[in-house]
């Protein structure tokens, strides 16, 4: 790989993809359900980072459309996370026999 290809845009975008991968790995291998929900959020943040870093340009203003997509994505992520947490809480409330901590 040529060093000249490593523009800041590529480096930020690659970190976004790394976050996506870390989140995906966490979703699969971390046993705790709350951490799985957090892992999904980490994946989302990775994608948002990719979007935002691809919007920034050296000579012109940043492209607002990816920023708007990120804002919409954040709201949707909040909704999904809240629904997941709520379901976990209800499942815990209905836990069979022995009480969980």
């Amino acid at each position: 790989m040529m060093l000249s290809q490593l523009t800041p845009e590529i480096m930020y975008s690659a970190s976004g993809i790394a976050l996506f991968g870390i989140g995906l790995l966490g979703l699969i291998i971390v046993p705790h359900i709350f951490r799985k929900i957090l892992a999904i959020n980490v994946m989302g943040v990775g994608i948002f980072m990719l979007l935002v870093s691809s919007a920034k340009r050296a000579n012109i203003d940043a492209d607002p459309v990816p920023h708007a997509m990120v804002l919409t994505g954040i709201v949707v992520a909040v909704a999904g996370t809240a629904l997941a947490l709520f379901l976990v809480k209800k499942i815990n409330d209905l836990a069979p026999s022995e009480k969980s901590q």
């Binding site: 975008s13 995906l24 979007l51 994505g73 997941a84 379901l87 499942i91 209905l94």
Partner: peptide, 30 residues
């Protein structure tokens, strides 16, 4: 409890699927 567990698994799968799709959207837009 069974329905809630099915719903939670479906939710996580659905979010995972949407995020894969969103990453593709980001690549295509870029």
């Amino acid at each position: 409890r069974a329905a809630l567990i099915a719903a939670l698994r479906y939710l996580l799968v659905s979010l995972l699927g949407s995020l894969c799709y969103l990453l593709a959207v980001a690549l295509l837009y870029r």
